[in-house]
Design a protein around this nucleic acid. Sequence first.
DNA 1: CAAAAACTGGCAATCGTTTGCCATACTAGG
DNA 2: CCTAGTATGGCAAACGATTGCCAGTTTTTG
Lengths: 338, 338
Amino acid sequence: MENGVRSVRRRAVTLHDVARRAGVAVSTASRALSDPQRVNVTTREHVQAIARELGYRPNRLAQALPTGRTGMLAVLVPDITNPHNFGLVRGAEAQARAAGSALVIADTQGARELEGAHLDRLASSVDGFVLASSRLPDDELRTLAERSPVVLFNRRVEGVASLVTDSVDGSRQIIEHLVALGHRSLAYLAGPSAAWSDVERWRALSEHADAAGARIVRCGPFAPTLDGGPAAADVGMSTGATALIAFNDLLAIGVLRRLGERGIAVPAQVSVVGYDDIFGSDFCSPPLTTVAGPVDEAGRTLVDVLLAGRDPVPAITLPTHLRVRGSTGPVLSPGSGA
Amino acid sequence: MENGVRSVRRRAVTLHDVARRAGVAVSTASRALSDPQRVNVTTREHVQAIARELGYRPNRLAQALPTGRTGMLAVLVPDITNPHNFGLVRGAEAQARAAGSALVIADTQGARELEGAHLDRLASSVDGFVLASSRLPDDELRTLAERSPVVLFNRRVEGVASLVTDSVDGSRQIIEHLVALGHRSLAYLAGPSAAWSDVERWRALSEHADAAGARIVRCGPFAPTLDGGPAAADVGMSTGATALIAFNDLLAIGVLRRLGERGIAVPAQVSVVGYDDIFGSDFCSPPLTTVAGPVDEAGRTLVDVLLAGRDPVPAITLPTHLRVRGSTGPVLSPGSGA
DNA sequence: CAAAAACTGGCAATCGTTTGCCATACTAGG
DNA sequence: CCTAGTATGGCAAACGATTGCCAGTTTTTG
C-alpha cells in the first residue's frame, strides 16, 4: 500500500525486490522469468505477477555480465553523413530490433586509428560488429574476427564473414550502358585509395572497358562527398572523356552541380554515372544514372549473419543493377548538336 | 615469455590478470589506473606498465555496474530515414565521441509504443536520452526525466530539458517572404498531428498570416515523407493557394516531384516552401526554399546538456533562417504569364 | 511397496570492476 | 621517545543478474 508514493527515488526495481515480495529466492525469481519450465506453474505465475505489478525491468548490464550477451550491436561507418549508409543503418536497425538488440553507431571518418579506437572502446559492450567499408588491414580484421563476431560490408577478406553489393557486376553494367550509347572515352573519378571498393570498382571498370574497346582513365582520388565534386568535375572534363564515372553518388551529384555551374550540359555534352543510388540521386538534376544495390536488405542480412554465428564463414554477394536516369545519354558527335 | 602464443583463446585480459602479474591486489590495480594519486608512484607506474604490456582494456560493462555510468547515450528519432536527422546524429556523435561516450540509435517510427519500448529497453544501458520529436505525452516525459537524464529536441515540455530550432520564427520568415512576393492565399500541408512541431508551425503560420492579411488553410495530415508528396500536392493545389508550405522538406520535395509530373511550374504557378534544409533540398529541382537551422550544433548541444546535468533545466532555442532558393517566386496574376 | 526418476526451490559462486573501511608502516610534531 | 597524523595497500562487500549443483518432495515404475 506504500504504492501511492510515486517516489522521487531513482532506484529501479531489481530482481531481489521481486523475489523478496514473492517470498522466493532470487534464483527462483530469475528462472520464473527467463526459464519458465524450470519452475512450478503456480510459483512462476506468482512471480510473474509480482514482477509485473512492481514494473520490474531486468538490468541489461547486469544480465550481460554473466551471460556475455549485451544485446547491442555496433555498426561502424566511415561517414554517417553519407546517405548511402543510412539505408544500411535502417536495415540493420530494423533487423536488430526484431531480434531484441539495439544498435550502436560510430563514425570512423574513414580513419584507421579512429576505427581501431572504436573497436577497442566497444569490444566489451557489444555482441558484434558490422564494419562498413573498413579501412583496417586484412590481418587486423582477421585477428579481430577471432575474438569477436564481425561481418564486413563492402570489403572482402579471406576468413572473415562479409557481404558486398556486386559493384564488379555494376561496373560491367555501367560500361555496357555507356558503350551502347556510343561512349569510347571514359574517366573514373576515384574515391579514397584506402577504400577496398574503390580498388574493386576501378579494376572492374578498366577490365570491362578494355574488353569493350573503350578508353578509360583514372582521376583522383577525390573526397567522396558533395564537396569533392568541383575538383573531380574539372579534372574529369579536362581528360576529354565523354562520360564521367564517379566513385559514388555523393561525388557524382557534386560533379553534376559543378557541371551545371560551368554551363556544361548533361547528358548532351557529358554523361555522368555514380554508385549507390542514394537518397537524392533520383531528384537531382538531371536525375543520376547509378548502380543500385539492396542496401536495406544488406543491413538486415548483415545483422542476421552477425547473430546467426558463422560456421562456414559466409561471403555473400548481393546483386546490383544499373538504374538508368537522365544523366546519361548518347554521345553526340561535335557537329551534330545545336 | 609465453607471449608468442598469440592464442586462439577468446578470454580478454582482466584486471585480475594485471594485478596478479604486477603482484598487487585488484583494488590497487584498479586505483593505479583510475585514481592515480591514491597509490604510490612506483607501484602505479609498475601496474600501468603491466597493463599496457598485457593490452588490458577495462570491461565497460563491469565498470558500469558499480558506477552506474555506462558511457552510452541513446538517441531516439522518429525516422532514421529522414535526412534531417542525419545532421542531428552527426553532431551528437561528434560530441559524444569527444566526451568518450558512444551513441545508441533507435528508430521510433513516430510511434508512441515503440518509443516507450525503446526507452524501457535502454534505460539500464545508457546514461541518458536524446529524444527527437518525441510523441510521448507531457507527463510521461516528465516522469521519465525524473528517473534518467533526458533532453528533448524539437519539443518543449515544462520541467524537462529541451532544445528547439526556432520554427516559430522560421514560420514568420516564411510568411513575410511569401507576402512580400505577393502571395495572399496559402496552404499548409500538415505533418503528423502527434508531432509537437506540426502544431507549433501551424500556429505560428496562421497567426502571422492573419497579421499580414493573408489567407492560409491547413491540409492533411500527410505522411512526412517523399511518398506523402503526391497526396499533399494534389490537395494543396485544389485549395487554389498560390504557395504551399510543407511540414518538412521531405514532404516538400515529394510535392515538387508531383507538381513536376503534373506539369505545374514552380515557382511560376505555385511556390513551395519546406522546413529543415535537409540534404538534397539544395539540389532538387527547383532548389527548395526552406527554413534552415543549425542541426549539427543542435546535436552537439543536446549531448552537452545531457552530460552536463541540468540544474536550472535548460530550454534552449536555436535561431533559424529562411534559405531562399528557386522554389519560391513572385505570384503571377493569371493573365500576366505566357 | 521399495527404488528410481523427475520436479522444485535454494545456496552460493561467478561475471569484472569500484570503493568503503581497516591495518600497517612511515613521517612528523611535541 | 611517544603520539598523532598521513600515506599505502589489501579485504571484502557491493552492483544485479545467471546458473551449476544439491537437497528435499513428489511422482513414476517395476
